[in-house]
Amino acid sequence: MTLGLFNKPVYDEIASTAKSFGDAMVKLGAKYKNVVVLDANAGRFLNLGGFARAFPDRYFNFGNAESNMIGAAAGFTIRGKIPFVCSFSMFITGRAWEQIRNAIAYPLLNVKFVGAFSGILCGEDGATYQALEDVALMRAIPNMKVACPSDSVETKQALEAMMNDYGPTYFRLNNTPVNNLHDDNHKFEFGRGHVYKPGTDVCIFSYGDTFHSSLGVAEMLERDGVSTMVVNLSSIAPLDENLVVECAKQASHVVTVEDHQITGGIGTAVAEVLSRDYPTKLTRLGMNGFGESGKPEDLYKKYRLDAVGIYEQIKALF
């Protein structure tokens, strides 16, 4: 059996987190009448058609004008609305960063930012569209929570968690289909990580699509007799600091894997915690530079974010 991002053990549902998000929003909109969706000409990539058809008076397109959209989100909150601000990760977090910081996070407004096509997985659109710094940009803002679900179950649960929470959140989504790794008993909570698979030699922290790769890596390493722990840190901020320390203590090698620059992402977040509470050697895997156009699976192969690539990089540590 081949393993890795695109050949995972088969579970029930195959959908991208972006698609699951759009499906979940229809239910969320029916449940919460104050949910509004603001879209910057990217709704189809977040599967927002269902929401727009079901609640035409709560769906607003702002065209290709992210800065204005985020400024307007601040206005919506004054009337008690909860805006879900949707676009490409790159243009929400990058182009409109100052609007997010000053208009939303500083006054602590209840606005949810949803970004599609995150990471190099964005694919053929090339480096221009590949948000590889979004986690770093959002993580640095006070009051901001950052979540990246790994499958449709987590996507739905994270949405509920966002609704039960007050304050700005950045929700990082991808558009490549993934299997469901979790069943409905799994619970997403902000500030909580989840040990998906226990192990003692290597501990891999990851989130999103590279979490899927990491599970493939674990299986390959186990075959080599290396006991591997895989931890899903889908709540990137706040980070489950206790869990990070506990897991690091159990393993002899600590590795972070992410589809993001190794600077500023979860590698940095884990390093911050460990350097303070449990200094140990940490290997950060991820992107170190700009991406390029290509099929997502080819890019993961080239930039060694697929199971084989990660496996080889971890094996080199021994």
Partner: peptide
């Protein structure tokens, strides 16, 4: 009602508020 002062933000906020009204 809204943080302001970062130039150019205010009209967007007012716009969102007017849309919500």
């Amino acid at each position: 009602v809204l943080n302001a002062g970062s130039l150019g933000h205010g009209l967007s906020g007012a716009l969102g508020l007017a849309m919500a009204l």
